Simulated assay, not measured.
Amino acid sequence: MRTYLDLVVGFARTGVTGYGGGPSIIPLIEYEAVKKYKWMNEDEFGETLALANTLPGPIATKMAAYIGFKVKGSAGAAVAILAHILPSSLAMMVLLGFLYSFRHSPVVKGMVTGVSPVIGVMLAVLAFQFLTKSKKTMGSKWMAVFAIVSFLLLQGISLHPGIVIGLFLVGAFILSTYKIKKDQGWKAPVMQERERQL
C-alpha cells in the first residue's frame, strides 16, 4: 500500500508542478523516479525516455505509465497515470474561467515569462547529465559526433525527434556490435595461446 501512495504523491507532484507541459516535466519525473524513490537508476531512466520519445502521445503520460508498471504492474501504471493527470486537469477546469479572464494581464504574462528561464535551466541540467553519461559509455569523440549530428537533424532539417531517436538507436546498436566484435577478435588469439599452454 505504501508503494501505491508513493506513486500517487510522486506523480501528483509532477503533474501539479510541471509547468509548461511535455519536456519541462521530464526533470521532475527524473527527480521522483531516480533520486527520491529510486524506482530506477539514471541509465534506465535515459533509456525509458529515449524509447518513450519514439511512441505517439504525451511524453509525461508514457513515462508515468512505464514507471508505474515497473513498480506495481498494471495497477501501478493506472495509479501513476491518474495521479499525474487528475490534479492538473481538475485545477484547469476549476481555474480556467478565472485565468481566461486575465489572459491579457501583464501580471500573468510576467509570470509566464518568469517561469520560462527556470524550465530552460532544468532541461539544460538534464541534457548535461545525459551528455556526461554518454561520454563515459561511448567516449568523447562519438558523443560529440552524435550530439552534433542530432542537433543538425533536429534544428537544421526539422526531422521528427522520434525518427532521430530511432536512427540513433540503430546507429548505437551497429557501433556497439562493431566494438564487441573488435574486442573479441583482439582477445581471441590471446585465449588461443592460453589454451595451447594448458
Rank of each mutant, 00 (worst) to 15 (best):
L5D: 05
T3F: 06
I163M: 09
Y37S: 08
A65Q: 05
T48I: 14
L99N: 05
Y31Q: 15
A65D: 08
L131I: 15
G20Y: 01
V164C: 02
S88M: 08
A91H: 00
F102C: 06
A127P: 12
F11D: 05
P117F: 12
H84G: 02
V71C: 04
L82F: 11
L169Q: 09
H104G: 13
Q184Y: 11
L96W: 15
Y37V: 02
K179C: 01
K38F: 07
Y19K: 03
G73Y: 03
Q197M: 13
R103N: 02
G20E: 07
K36L: 14
L175E: 12
L167Q: 04
K141E: 10
L82W: 05
K35L: 12
M93H: 09
V107H: 14
I157Y: 07
S134D: 03
V164Q: 00
F102H: 11
A78I: 13
I180E: 11
L131F: 11
H160S: 04
I67Y: 07
V125L: 12
L154M: 06
G21V: 02
P27Y: 03
A60E: 10
P27A: 09
P106M: 10
L51Q: 06
N53V: 04
V145P: 00
K109M: 14
Y66I: 14
D6N: 15
I163T: 12
T14I: 08
M92L: 08
T177P: 02
V34C: 10
Y19H: 04
F45G: 12
G120C: 07
M138A: 13
F98K: 14
F69Q: 14
A65N: 07
S150V: 01
G114M: 06
G76S: 04
F168H: 02
P23N: 14
S116V: 15
N41G: 10
A77D: 06
E44T: 12
T177N: 12
M138H: 10
A33V: 10
L123V: 12
D183Q: 15
K141G: 05
A64E: 05
